[in-house]
Design a protein around this nucleic acid. Structure first.
Lengths: 219, 219
DNA sequence: CAAGTATTCAAGCGAATACTAGAATATACA
DNA sequence: TGTATATTCTAGTATTCGCTTGAATACTTG
């Protein structure tokens, strides 16, 4: 029976490893991150990733087989989404562990997210207070479909490519906080740069929408 | 600069994938699970896994390189341990996701952990109450080194191989709750079988020690 | 039914990975 | 210094993985 137990363990960990292997590819990890913002088609994932549609589709089959994603049809489009909330949490935790353990991750963040922003990002607590007070413009600079899938309360959807031509919509004396896809996205940083160049008082938040919602969910 | 951004993303997700790849092997996942119970030598991991020392050592180098584990020397022994608590949480979450998503995992549990135990495991809430009341024997059937590294309050260390010859130590009228390494370990199930065959009123808990401690930590 | 669009599948190629076997290294002790 | 024990390293082999290319499939529309 000790031998049965060994065999059972091998099979069990073989199954666990299916999830691990699914997360063992940079492409698939980025796909999962993109899907955590909103459901997407194969083609739109391919554009975001700079990969071929065929390649993206093959990776999606792997994620599907591991049941980390699910699909629905919309005409000729297959819309992929994360299978459930726990998959999103797993992804976030993998990134947290990566940042804690790997100096290379911290260095990559330093490259673009630390050195050039003399003002540190707004903390989550500050953000909560600012949202409550309603004293800032809160802008979501992700693509509109991601805003539509879920956004912070009171946020305006100002996709980054449109930002420069919408500056006149705002009172230059009212501060702006920009956010995007979370800790590993450069959109908010780019937005703050554009805004400050235009004379606005702007800072960014590194909060993720899903993480914010989880923390502020009412059961 | 959009090209810079793409390159930065590729490097970042390449780093995240280092963690994913480290978790993409059944052997390494089982090693991490074993280390979450207590620090261990290469040789003891090899015994538990039924693998060669050389093979285990190579996998440990991969985990070391991904900084998921750390080491200390003890004579000729190299003692490996989990790098930090977040690694343990990542592992638990990967197993949770595996069980939610993969029917094969649920089936493997059914094989040994569902069908033959007519009495379901003690829930965590029941266990808390039982520990408070002090009305049961709570026995930890893991190896002594794992008990020493951390155990539930009030638990006795009764390693499974010794159980059968220690039955006379207990009042047959007092119920027993056995626990081991958590949801994916068969020791408590085996212990309960031995105890019931000897006429004891015995149930098992599927709680993991680390998970229990996290929930009951005083800051 | 034909054409267009989106997606998936299959095959090939090169790179990466897991295990084994044996050698090399590190540490402790007499 | 030599021996024993524990661990790591190296090389070879078999298998798996990731990407590309082109074909096949699925769906929609006219």
């Amino acid at each position: 029976m000790a031998e049965d137990s060994r065999v059972w363990k091998d099979r069990l960990y073989g199954q666990f490893a299916r999830i691990g292997k699914a997360l063992g590819s940079p492409r698939r990890l980025e796909m999962l991150d993109l899907l955590s913002q909103s459901p997407k088609s194969v083609e739109s994932l391919a554009r975001e990733l700079g990969s071929s549609v065929a390649n993206v589709s093959q990776h999606l089959q792997i994620l599907l087989e591991a049941q980390l994603v699910a699909t629905r049809k919309q005409g000729t489009f297959v819309i992929y989404r994360l299978a459930n909330e726990t998959v999103a949490q797993l992804l976030e935790l993998l990134e947290t562990v990566s940042e804690e353990c790997l100096a290379d991750v911290r260095e990559l963040r330093d490259l673009y997210l630390t050195q050039r922003d003399a003002l540190s990002p707004v903390s989550d607590r500050e953000l909560e207070a600012l949202i409550q007070e309603g004293t800032v413009y809160l802008i979501d600079v992700r693509p509109p479909s991601e805003y539509a899938a879920g956004h912070l309360p009171g946020a305006l959807s100002i996709p980054l490519p449109e930002l420069a031509e919408r500056l006149q919509e705002w009172d230059p004396d009212r501060p702006i906080v920009a956010y995007c896809r979370g800790r590993y996205c450069l959109y908010a940083r780019d937005a703050v740069e554009v805004l400050r160049d235009a004379g606005f008082s702007a800072r960014r938040s590194e909060v993720g929408v899903r993480e914010w919602r989880r923390r502020h969910s009412s059961a």
